[in-house]
Write a protein that binds this DNA or RNA. Sequence first.
DNA 1: CGCGGCCTTGACAATCGTCAAAACATGTGG
DNA 2: CCACATGTTTTGACGATTGTCAAGGCCGCG
Lengths: 246, 246
Amino acid sequence: MNAPTISHISCADCPIRHRAVCARCESDELEALDAIKYYRSYEAGQPIIWSGDVMNFVGSVVSGIATLTQTMEDGRTQMVGLLLPSDFVGRPGRDGAAYNVVATTDMVMCCFRKKPFEELMAQTPHIAHRLLEMTLDELDAAREWMLVLGRKTAREKIASLLTIIARRDASLTPRGAVNSMTFDLPLTREAMADYLGLTLETVSRQMSALKRDGVISLEGKRRVSVPDMGRLFEEAGDDSDGGFMS
Amino acid sequence: MNAPTISHISCADCPIRHRAVCARCESDELEALDAIKYYRSYEAGQPIIWSGDVMNFVGSVVSGIATLTQTMEDGRTQMVGLLLPSDFVGRPGRDGAAYNVVATTDMVMCCFRKKPFEELMAQTPHIAHRLLEMTLDELDAAREWMLVLGRKTAREKIASLLTIIARRDASLTPRGAVNSMTFDLPLTREAMADYLGLTLETVSRQMSALKRDGVISLEGKRRVSVPDMGRLFEEAGDDSDGGFMS
DNA sequence: CGCGGCCTTGACAATCGTCAAAACATGTGG
DNA sequence: CCACATGTTTTGACGATTGTCAAGGCCGCG
């Protein structure tokens, strides 16, 4: 039932070559990584790791999307991260996974067994530096999300999420500064709710409200059009557009 | 009006020597750090950095407590981190501060000008590694806090905060596994509210409720006694005590 | 004593969650 | 092709939690 195994691809041809943990590597360092890497694919919906499980690998998302979630005993769940292509999974220096990682679309990961990766990292400052840089970026993102979770209204939360997804989409397929955008929502209403600390009913209602007020329009349930990105940023309550318009 | 300048202290005598960014350094590396470090002190209430300001130093908290906050245009504010002794302030590789940093008690910091520190870090894997480790810990803490902000009730939020402070206090002054504890709350009700994504009135009400229900008792406004830590963990909704009881 | 912070408490309102029903899409098997 | 089952989304009615506004208490300090 697994997706087919992926054949070995040269790092030089890798689509995330310049953004992943290997971004700063020289060609010899890349060869060392190439020697220990392997690809794994996951189907949409498949769990990658359960919180508490022993993790004997780390890796980078090559394509597809995964979510990082935490759950309480009674089932309440909170998404704590969204993993997109080039994002790193796993923590060198720790055995157990701290979160559930689930593929929400079909996914391909570039994996390394943890032990050899840790050894290589100890000898390769370029990898360690890049990982530090990526971790600091994730920390900033997590802290920005704390403001969303702690202080924004349901409507602002939805607008904030749409803003983030739009921004990511724009960075993947640059098209210059434009005022309107259309993109796919890679999350179910429930996943959106788990990200935003809301119920799925509230998410649905606020999506309808934003549609009714002309901030967005929907084609099907998942495709979103934003006629005026500036308006969306205002709705998100952000004091700036995060450099989106330029 | 500033607190007096602190004289130069040898790293060997530093109280945070084994936990800060320099924890892994050998003696020669420590000498290099010692050569570029300087101490700064701040009085309770003083701002250390405003979000957006240029930051020309980084450093470690030696003593005292500071808060990291984000604010929206309309004044809503969310605390995104609590800086305790040994925590690192600033981000190598970035000029502007992303958050407001404010001393909530009298504080002493061990500072480095950013440029020399960055250069030293490039040559000293022990520093870079330790900083990565600390950043990963902070990321975990931020993600754990996302669950608190997104999914917990007001009562659970308060209990979670008390749990964290109790745990930190216990790690500073170890006393073995005990079932009851007393500690000082280093935050005003407003600061607690900003941490928890609540209003100060709700914080006050829930503190009163926990007192009424015998989960805590108060001596003055700031000193908290917990007769049964297990009960507090339950109230926090955590599925474990985080290794506190042992 | 009186002032200013900080905290508590009350009354009321607003937001968001809960429970329930129904619309809609998608896939399976007859 | 239809019937049916399943999963997702929308919408409504209602209730609970939390926020807002307001008043008053406690405490240290000039």
